[in-house]
Design a binder for these strands. Structure first.
Lengths: 220, 220, 220, 220
DNA sequence: GATGAATGAGCGTTCATTCAT
DNA sequence: CATGAATGAACGCTCATTCAT
């Protein structure tokens, strides 16, 4: 941090670069959100008002760009999770978190595609966020279990899976009935409640197991 | 049936065509199932043992082919739904249907992609099946509601949405833990049960509403 | 060979494809000859009057195309070598072969680049021609040695190296003085003559040795 | 030399520039030697520890940079030629020069590529060195002719052409059999010896003739 | 003067679609 | 009718060159 004067005007020498990076990420985020991960890099560049080269300078491959955008989203999601933790009521906290995640994903086709695809969960910076997210989910769940709002067998991954599921499924109907996702989130949360008759089976695989499979596949 | 002359040599040209169409649909189904909707048309043609031209003669665009394959799958799904109706126990019937659908989708990447994308639900031949499916869902649901296994507010679309959701979300984990989908289906079904504290809100949009949105978009 | 009538008019059904392949090879040959191996595939396509796709249908990568063109050239060269073998005078035969090779290479930048680059000598169809070429060189050399025109230590590869050397070096001057290559070929042939004072040292590496090195490099 | 003030702190800005230029030339030389003329300018800049802008400030195009590096190499070659002149034995002197040139070129892909391409021999600063080199070759040849080691018709360019030829052709085999170039140099030198039966024909073109052709081409 | 971020034409390659055979 | 060769727009990516800082 160059401890120069704190004038908000001071745009630091590499302001241009920073600004452009920001523009690219923003443009990419919007493009992915609206048109999915298949948008061409040239489209994104046009949106951002830069050349394609500028994008490839920072993100050697398109996948790197996707990962960066996904990372951003994950950061917001982790933020929402933290907010959930800070709420007094355990059940409300859990729901707040899930609702935030859904809102973020629903207006973002690209994020949904990335979240569904296995590959993007493996980039190193994302692994960190993922673990952080799971840790917070763990605590959210613990609190909710103690409050009697969630069955004992639930594990953190379940929350991620559920958001994914609701987001994906609701997206089809969402355009016609904004907010339907709440309908399905209610079903999911009610399904998570303690219930005598049914057991959650089988166990959800651990992240490590999932990754082992991925790597085995990649090797082929 | 064009009753042409019965020369044993003459294998009725139309029969050949039929056979080819069958081969194409089968090949496309397998290809989509294994590699997703992105497989090249040439790959499919090779699998089917025909030329690409033959495919495009019957299906003017690749999307038409996808829709046709999706239609097939839907027919199987409708079949499973009918089986569910024939079972004595209402709850078992519902679960049988949902499980069948899930099994069909989980081993078929292409079907999952098609079911998630809005467009394929609108192709005219599919509309018929979709309506049929929804009608059966209606009856499955009615029975289940009467048996006290499903809340009053549930509507047929909910079932389709739920299968889609579970299938999509489970597919990521499925490779590492075959059968996890049962875990999430349990959550969904428990969530559908009558429950005093929560209401399903908002209402799911009707098919007509969804389609109105689609068409408004297409016009742009 | 479809034993249909021998009418020269009969262009066989796939005449178009054959013709196009021919056009592509011809165009590629000319383009490489004039502008070197770096010409764009689009340029070649334009010359041939086809789309780029047509080229990639037959030659999955540009390198495959280059190899195919190189193969053609090698076939011509092997033909010239055979002609040399059929001449009565051993020395004349040798010179005839070398001159033919030079003429072929000198008006063809692409061929020279390919001949100088290690990679193109390794494609399977070319290996066959290469071995054939070396076998003929062997016999040309044997005859020449017996006639006292070439020193004992000379090996077939030497001939290939020499042609390469003369072609490459002469190409610079060739434009200004068409035919200079004869000057340098004379030097090379005189240098190959038996001579008491000097020995050819060290031995030329065998093809196998050269290839071993190539493969070791490629592995890195 | 601008005799500015002698402040010890002031490291004369021009000295920095000089140093940078030196670094760039050194880095470029190494990069070209190892990876050929196709290395990216950015790579060279990185090696040199400067920005690409710095390179383009001094060398408006990449070709200018190549020419500058080539010039350096030529200076070394001229030096080797001078050493050859100073040796007592005419034949040894000639061979010393040729060997030095070969050694320089063989470990330097970039130099070989530049020497083979016509364009780089025409850059103004190189013309001077080229002429100097040819003048020395003239004297080397004269001495060798007088000593009976070289035929009368040989001209200075022949030497340059020969080195180029041997270097290029040997480079392929060199990796497998370090030192093979000596084999081919021997052939070339023996071929240059006086010989009754053959004449060197046609005459090598003069530098002027070569350049005339180049310029005629450029105009097109 | 030095920097390296930005540029964009150009590359090799893919693939849905068309159409001559 | 069936075929598969031809098409060419579009893709992800590279790199010599320019120019704001």
């Amino acid at each position: 941090m160059p401890t120069t004067r704190d004038h908000p005007k001071e745009k630091t020498l590499r302001a241009d670069a920073q600004r452009n990076l920001e523009l690219v990420l923003k443009a990419a985020g919007e493009a992915f959100a609206e048109q999915g991960l298949e948008v061409g890099v040239a489209d994104i560049a046009r949106r951002a008002g830069v050349g394609t080269g500028t994008i490839f300078r920072r993100f050697p491959t398109k996948d790197d760009l996707i990962a960066a955008v996904f990372e951003r989203r994950l950061e917001e999601i982790v933020g929402a999770a933290r907010e959930g933790l800070e709420m007094e009521d355990a059940e409300q906290g859990l729901r707040h978190f899930l609702e935030s995640m859904l809102r973020l994903q629903l207006c973002d086709r690209g994020c949904m595609e990335a979240a569904s695809g296995a590959d993007y969960w493996q980039a190193p910076p994302i692994v960190r966020l993922r673990n952080e997210l799971l840790a917070i989910c763990e605590r959210l769940l613990e609190r909710a279990k103690r409050a009697g709002a969630v069955r004992e067998e639930a594990v953190p991954q379940d929350l991620v899976v559920i958001v994914n599921a609701v987001a994906h499924a609701a997206s089809l109907a969402e355009a016609a009935a904004p907010g339907v996702w709440r309908r399905y989130l209610t079903i999911a949360l009610d399904g998570l409640r303690p219930r005598s008759g049914t057991r959650l089976e089988p166990d959800a695989p651990t992240i490590e197991q999932i990754e082992a499979v991925k790597q085995r596949r990649a090797r082929r």
